[in-house]
Design a protein around this nucleic acid. Structure first.
Lengths: 327, 327
DNA sequence: CTACTTTGTTGGAGCGCTCCAAACAGTTGT
DNA sequence: ACAACTGTTTGGAGCGCTCCAACAAAGTAG
């Protein structure tokens, strides 16, 4: 910076003003500085800048797991909204483990990011609370009882209801549910399923099989369900990956979809959209959720408000080829 | 830090030594400092630390696109190796565009990361060269003619050869190739295909259909290939996603795999491993490639060596259910 | 012509750390 | 008792920037 100033024949402070394109710089000096900077390939040092200004203009994003396409799409929404608001985003993966996640969060805390977004964190409520005490925190797809963070989630119960309503409208009455265990959102989806079944007077047909969001648990659930005295005519699985496992197992058993049985997933990941899978599923508006998280965060950064807001987004149903009329 | 020092009854410099766990600190003062730090919740400021030490101990990782599971798995390898070497990794996505990618790289350059890894960059050779001039750079799955970066790639030609050898050993002779266009590695895979066909004396059966790594291009390629006078008995597709599109179209046409036709993909992404897809494919040892990239980088950081090394990794074949004996 | 604004520009303090030379406190050897 | 160590500890300079009060120059009003 010193060199740029000298070369442009101005003071260091002036160079600083130009780099932050302040309006109070004459056209003449701006050009001189820009030219000098270009000549020697000057690039401002973000470390020094942040240290001095106490602002980093960056948002940290901790993703539960890079392998899950759900989070990748969330990242798009976060990135776009952040860039529009003048922030940069830096990502870290928690690699699905608590240690990975707290390491990722610690890095961002040490970098003193202006705000942190955690998507689908697996950390305990109290660990998350501690992070929220150290920085502005927004949670996506995870709720905690404390008011130390903002939250944006989709309404899992409504999503489950959408799925059941769709199946019922196709004439299905024997609808089973493959559970997501302790996974994020699983409880809400399960509750929504039960509630929707009751609303349709199908209390007696409620049947829940355990699962854990994995492909293999989806396949295992099918084995429990089919060959039974009265196999269901439709199955609502707690997420897309698990539904894929179920789909495969069903076909292995010689059943064809949607003729013999209907299947609905949850999340609308890229997987569900593959032609070869074409899964009817519940869509969480990820782009929107990511954008909203950024908005909550930047509002808080800029106005210094309190945490504790909780936005609940309504999911939508995406009908593809795995659902059809009941026989 | 000041407060920690005061509370522990030592100097600031000593606190600094403890935080970096220097060996030249007595057990007594170490404990006192740690205790004081814990009490007031002190967390070193990475900005200040980096500014003073001119080291960030972080590696920037720019991924071509988060949606592609190939890159997610690469990130695992990079992360694990980096952590072992005492570095932290921060990720940024290029979102598949040149602007996104150069923005991501610029962020890391301004953060003065100790080194940068770019996976499958879409930027031009000269743009990459410029980045290499500003920091230590390692490229994964991308080669450039300049010696401003280290590179680690898989041997696409060998991978293609593995696929063709496998098909030939199953008795196939009419083997077509669906191309990856300008995508990373596509040229090498195409060349390897042609070469392997020649090596088996199948020069006259070489048939290449254009594609671009997308699902739809895979489906379109099938339409060109099937219904032809002499349809192939096996198809080698340039990547897994495209192969999925081909797989779906083949089944739509009433062909079953591997009885009627065999299909091989490339990359061995999580997609290929799905039970419902079970694609025979060429595996790039991502974990290893990521780890190697980190090793090259840290070696260069620590010994100050020159760039320009190029490691080529041998791919392997993963046989699943889409390939079988020729009729 | 003086007083007052407005517009640009500047030196210097300070952000929270690391690093270095120097100081200090105990040994140990002679 | 003194020099020569070894192992710890410390004050202060400096990393590259931003921010602020102060200032210079030029315009405006009375």
């Amino acid at each position: 910076m010193e060199d740029v100033a000298e070369r442009a024949g101005v003071s260091r402070a002036l160079v600083s003003l130009v780099m932050r394109d302040s309006p109070k710089v004459s056209e003449k000096s701006r050009e001189a500085v820009l030219k000098a900077a270009g000549q020697i390939g000057y690039r401002p040092n973000l470390m020094a800048r942040s240290l001095a200004s106490q602002r980093t203009m960056t948002i940290g994003l901790v993703l539960n797991d890079l392998h899950n396409p759900f989070f990748a799409e969330l990242a798009d929404g976060v990135h776009n909204a952040a860039v529009d608001a003048g922030y940069r985003v830096v990502i870290n993966s928690g690699f699905g483990t608590a240690e990975g996640e707290s390491g990722a969060a610690a890095t961002f805390l040490e970098y003193r990011v202006d705000g942190l977004i955690m998507a689908g964190p697996v950390l305990s409520d109290s660990q998350i609370e501690n992070i929220g005490d150290e920085t502005r925190l927004v949670l996506i797809a995870r709720e905690i009882p404390m008011r130390t963070a903002d939250m944006v989630t989709n309404d899992d119960a409504v999503g489950a209801q959408l799925a059941i309503d769709h199946l019922v409208s196709l004439g299905h009455t024997e609808i089973a549910h493959v559970d997501g265990g302790v996974g994020a959102g699983a409880a809400g989806r399960r509750a929504g399923y039960v509630q929707a079944m009751k609303a349709h007077g199908l209390d007696r047909s409620v049947r829940i099989v355990p699962g854990d969001f994995t492909e293999s648990s989806g396949a295992a659930a099918i084995d429990r369900l089919i060959g039974h005295d009265s196999p269901p005519s439709a199955i609502f699985v707690a997420n897309d990956l698990s539904a894929t496992g179920a789909l495969h197992r069903l076909e292995q058993l010689g059943l064809s979809l949607p003729e013999d049985i209907s299947l609905v997933g949850y999340d609308n990941t890229a997987l569900a959209a593959l032609g070869h899978i074409a899964l009817t599923t519940v869509n969480q508006p990820r782009e929107l959720m990511g954008g909203l998280a950024v908005k909550m965060l930047t509002d808080r950064i800029e106005s210094g408000g309190e945490a504790g807001t909780h936005e609940v987004i309504a999911p939508t149903l995406v009908v593809r080829s795995t659902t059809g009329p009941a026989r």
